[in-house]
Design a protein around this nucleic acid. Structure first.
Length: 477
RNA sequence: GGCGACAUGGCCAAGCGGUAAGGCAGUGGUUUGCAAAACCAUUAUUCGCCGGUUCAAAUCCGGCUGUCGCCUCCA
């Protein structure tokens, strides 16, 4: 029984899909006007974890993750410049070229982070017709109106506006400055379609519409694409906590006004984190990309581990030390796996190990069922690791027990995805060096032995001695 | 001003009414030619503060404080 915290009700709720074991999930994806940063990835990572865990729990997940390549305005819902156009102007390039470039890097980064490929990654610019269709219906139903610069959604017509964020109409009035310089009926009415007039006269990305040439508002793309691939009603919609208002609030308004059905059952939002105790911001220069993390000497999987080590609704403090811890933890598990895989002896303790593995699995599932409590789940894994290491030390675990533990760790990894379990291929020259060192050791030439070990480390491999001059070779993570 | 979230050891982080998980770092020890890995021991009488409920509260209730996000305000 999986329980998830639903932002819509502010409660922990038992998850139940609309349709049997089928889960329809929509993730708010990136706006590809620049490199995605670790904050963006933490949100996609949460979605990936949720998808993996749902699949592990027997659900079939249809995951849609959009690519926003137009229409995301830099200021509020209907003012300011389009992010894509701004980047294009600044970099003096075609906005499409920019969008495709950053999209490519973004997908490469997701692969590095072991984020699974969704069912589809629809692009906003390729779904303009679907958006226009929705806007037309909203016009017909009286939820939208036309002004000289665009089509707007009339929030006073949608009674549930504000239900997600708490920013209901009466609350929005408090202290609200009334916009008199535009033709909107209510200051919080948001753009569905923008015409090529005034500031937007020279917008490069533009399409024909019943209201003349123009481009879509930011919010409508998600409603239109979610509807196209998942239907009017979806089970789970995710995003960063900053998306709650206005983006998701507006999505609900558009989609429910259009279909007259409940749009989303579960709204799941990823909490932001700090970087070294501070808010991640351009002015502080602490916005990291995957490349930055790699340049610091860590892998995307170290980052993945760190971001998953805290609960998704808790505020993590992202630090360099945290990355080091993550790396060490991953190493610890890989070492254990390696040791277990080299066991050949028969079991003497099988019953105890069976019980331990069974209990660990039960606790692991209980933790994850409880709103994806990853910290608790990791604790279960390390608790087991500690106990098994003790058996290894005492040489009281055999091949059957080892396999039980291994398969549980692999199950765990199918959800967390933090370990690369493909046996690393150790190059021949490294093995040669290791053998050479073994001889030096036997000859008690420790100077040479240490030199060779340093040489191997320099080439990216770690040599660990075992009894009788035997050794293990580990790739440096 | 509005809505919401969070506050646990040096750091990260569990805990969901029964007397503080786990990881990292530190210290001492075992092992090792030396390392690394692993193991053993050790590190919160205490969970932001103040009240209340209870035989029993980090856990429930009320109030306060702090931090953060969004909105607003201000520019």
């Amino acid at each position: 029984m999986i329980k998830l915290y639903n932002t819509y009700t502010n409660k922990l709720e038992v998850f139940k899909p609309i349709n049997g074991k089928e889960v329809k999930m929509y993730n708010c994806g990136p706006t590809v006007y620049s490199y995605a940063h670790i904050g963006n990835f933490s949100s996609y990572l949460m979605a990936d974890l949720l998808r993996r865990y749902l699949e592990y729990s027997g659900y079939k997940v249809k995951q849609v993750k959009n690519i926003t390549d137009v229409g995301h305005l830099v200021a509020d819902a209907d003012d300011g410049e389009d992010k894509m156009e701004k980047a294009a102007r600044e970099q003096k390039k075609d906005p499409y070229v920019i969008a495709r470039f950053y999209e490519k890097v973004y997908i490469e980064d997701e692969n590095k982070m072991n984020i699974l490929e969704p069912f589809i990654r629809p692009r906003a610019t390729e779904h303009i017709n679907e958006m226009i269709h929705m806007i037309e219906v909203l016009m017909k139903k009286g939820y939208a109106y036309e002004t000289e610069d665009g089509i707007y959604f009339d929030i006073t017509k949608f009674k549930d506006y504000g239900k997600l964020s708490g920013n209901t109409l009466d609350k929005l009035h408090i202290g609200a400055r009334v916009e008199i310089n535009d033709k909107k009926k209510h200051p919080y009415d948001f753009a569905l379609w923008k015409k090529l007039v005034f500031n937007n006269k020279y917008h490069i990305m533009k399409w024909d519409s019943p209201w003349g040439e123009g481009f879509p508002g930011w919010h409508i793309e998600c409603s239109a694409m979610a509807r196209k691939y998942l239907g009017d009603r979806i089970d789970i919609h995710t995003g960063g906590e900053d998306n709650i208002f206005p983006h998701h609030e507006c999505e609900i308004a558009q989609s429910e006004a259009y279909s007259s059905k409940k749009y989303v059952n579960f709204w799941i939002h990823k909490r932001w984190f700090f970087v070294e105790g501070k808010k991640m911001s351009k002015s502080l220069g602490n916005i990291y990309t995957i490349k930055d993390i790699e340049d610091m000497g860590y892998s995307a999987l170290d980052l993945r581990y760190l971001l998953l080590s805290a609960h998704y609704r808790a505020k993590l403090n992202f630090t360099k030390k945290g990355l080091t811890d993550a790396k060490n933890n991953r190493k610890k598990l890989l070492t254990l796996i390696n040791e277990l895989e080299s066991i050949t002896k028969k079991d003497t303790n099988l019953d105890i190990i069976k019980t331990m593995v069974k209990l660990a699995k039960k606790r692991f599932i209980e933790s994850m069922d409880n709103d994806l409590n990853t910290s608790a789940a990791l604790a279960v894994v390390f608790d087991l690791a500690k106990k098994i290491n003790k058996f290894l030390k005492e040489n009281t675990i055999g091949i059957e027990g080892a396999n039980l533990v291994l398969s549980l760790i692999k199950e765990f990894n199918s959800i967390f995805g933090v370990l690369d379990l493909n046996k690393a291929h150790i190059p021949a020259n490294i093995i040669l060096l290791a053998e050479e060192r073994k001889q030096s050791k036997i000859n008690k030439d420790f100077k040479q032995s240490d030199d060779i070990r340093a040489q191997i480390l320099k080439e990216g491999y770690e040599l660990r001695d075992k009894p009788n001059n035997e050794y293990d070779i580990y790739p440096v993570l």
